[in-house]
Design a protein around this nucleic acid. Structure first.
Lengths: 215, 215, 215, 215
DNA sequence: GATGAATGAGTCTTCATTCAT
DNA sequence: TATGAATGAAGACTCATTCAT
């Protein structure tokens, strides 16, 4: 199921695992990478934030780049797995499911630090292409697939009119992803431009989708 | 009209020879900043791409940060001005206008290198907060305002049902902005995930909006 | 004529040449490498000795290893060429020639800083094998060849008895090479163990060789 | 009998548990020092080769330098002692004794890892002067003395003509020492330049010496 | 104005040394 | 006694910035 890009990014030669300490290091690293980007993050600061010395980082990782990739990978992988379970949706009708999906997405990603990951990967996509490909293939595609399945179910149920759900899926995800990215960047330094809360926004969004999908 | 943030970003003390600043330098710089981010861009490369020596950059700018801000500022300012005129739309009915607006946006921004600007500003928002604020206040807000005006006009004309246009405006812009950012990042290193062309996507998007706005 | 090893060492990808400055840098570098060895030499010190800043070294060379190899290479190459001319010996009889050869060798190498090169290459042979191979193939072999030719001439002239000159050549060179190495190492920190001057030693040495070669 | 240098090198204040110092550690250390030099040898590798942890090294030695000196010292000391007995030669005639001496030297030193010691000490003489002095005073001088005694005996017996045996001794040792060093350095990475085996070389060498010493 | 050689502060990375277990 | 995780000083290397030409 995994793409080649995924493989390239998932199975690193450099391994290491004393499990427990590394996780703290990666968390500290990811926080700073999300905040400042890869190049602007100093390992000194990562070490300081993790409460260790600079040399300790090199006990677990072989380079700054390794730390970077690991911090992204180790955050994404549980994310993928967690999301995999969401696929086993309940048997709610599609319209309810749609709202549930967006709420779930927001609570799991948009409202958490994970949303910083999306910004980070976009910012560094050109510098770390396999990482971007991995993200695209394993995270985004999967995420959209869940959404498409819900829509297809709605069509099958006759609740939604027949549309190209695959093409629409991007339109449906965009507002949430956009808001998530925004909250990690411009939203961090400006008083919000959004007039409504995320929940209210989702309500409006779902309402709009449902209206547009009326048979 | 300008916010304080705008002022801070627009009129730096140290800028003086604005008129003589070669556009090539700024263009070269912006291209690289968009591609790699601020920290990962070397002035050596900027100079090489612009076809000048490294020292020459310092005849026109006082620092790397200055080059960065100038390249963003002097790209955005004409953008704002150009967009200001779009506001004075023709007297098309609101539904036509809406499609025209998105097409125009895509052709002017989404499909051009300017879309890299959005990605860049998001990526560096935490490191350059005034820049982000300026962008938020002077570009995004203005852009949304045009869209809101169109929607309000549609409501006034009775073509659209009455909705909170301000709140909806984010939902409406997101798919295009998202696609623009995407094309500058992950889309650069993956075969496209989007199944349809931008024009087709806009058609779907407008269609969806109009359906959802039916009175 | 050159061996593969020679090629590998002679034609580096990394080139660079602003000719004039580099030569001073390499001289400073070689002095320190000879004195301390590769790993124990700090580029800071090389720069200081050359009277430049650390960064300057990187304008001309791409790494410490590059500096090392270049300092050896650029010293050896003229050495080889200079020695090539010595081959065109005068028409002295072989016994005179032999003495002349050793005196020349001592004055050109043994008594100069070049003798440090031999020590250096032996010390770093395991860490820089191509360098050692180059030295072996292009310098040592050539050097021995000249000596062998002289001995062969003596045999042809009937002045020397017939011996395996190739096998003997090592026996003949060893005392001078050994003394050269010694002077760059232990001799540097001890009062000399040698009871006689180099010239006297050469006299004894030639005398011994000639006696042993009597027909 | 020992020189001050010898004392300084042999009896360091900080050495105390000489008896318990595992020979494996010293052997592993010496092997790597010989192969790579002092600075280029990592204690990590020494520990790994000795099959202990890095920390263990510090139970027996106080520093890397201590390990280095000990590995050299404790290899040399038995060497000296063993060699001292060689002095009490049998009552062979001097010419036979000479050949026996060289063969013994080669088998004891030249053909063993001990020959690496000579290379090592030369390479590090400038960085570790007392070590070099110790080696010079206690090993080389002693070694030469044995050789000189043999030659003197030959002169006394009337088998050799009267020469300055002390001055000649260096000429006589050089080929073997040179070959020993060579085998630990350039010879390690090149196919041998020597056309004959060490034994054959010694035969040629002794033959040459004897011829030149004919009354 | 324009150049590009030179600088040196800043970062990544290594590794001898320590110390809690 | 033995371990190996942790440390931090030291050293290679980069790159924004300066300046003589």
């Amino acid at each position: 199921m995994s793409t080649p890009a995924a493989e390239a990014f998932k199975a690193p030669r450099w391994e290491r695992r004393k499990d427990s300490r590394p996780a703290e290091l990666l968390q500290a690293a990811l926080d700073l990478f999300v905040e400042r980007g890869f190049a602007a993050t100093r390992l000194d600061d990562v070490a300081k934030r993790a409460g260790v010395s600079k040399g300790t980082l090199y006990l677990y990782f072989s380079s700054k780049e390794d730390i970077f990739k690991a911090s992204v990978r180790e955050t994404i992988v549980p994310m993928i797995e967690a999301f995999g379970e969401t696929v086993n949706q309940s048997d709610l009708p599609a319209d309810k499911l749609l709202r549930a999906f967006f709420m779930e997405w927001w609570n799991s990603f948009g409202a958490t630090k994970l949303s910083g990951l999306v910004k980070l990967i976009m910012a560094e996509a050109n510098n770390f292409p396999e990482m971007a490909r991995f993200f695209n293939d394993e995270v985004i595609a999967l995420n959209l697939r869940v959404l498409i399945d819900i829509a297809d179910k709605g069509v099958a149920e006759g609740r939604f009119r027949k549309v190209d759900t695959e093409a629409h899926s991007h339109l449906w995800m965009a507002p949430l992803v956009m808001r998530a990215i925004w909250s990690q960047s411009v939203g961090n330094v400006c008083t919000s431009m959004y007039m409504v809360s995320a929940e209210e926004m989702i309500d409006l969004h779902v309402d709009q989708i449902l209206r547009s999908l009326r048979p």
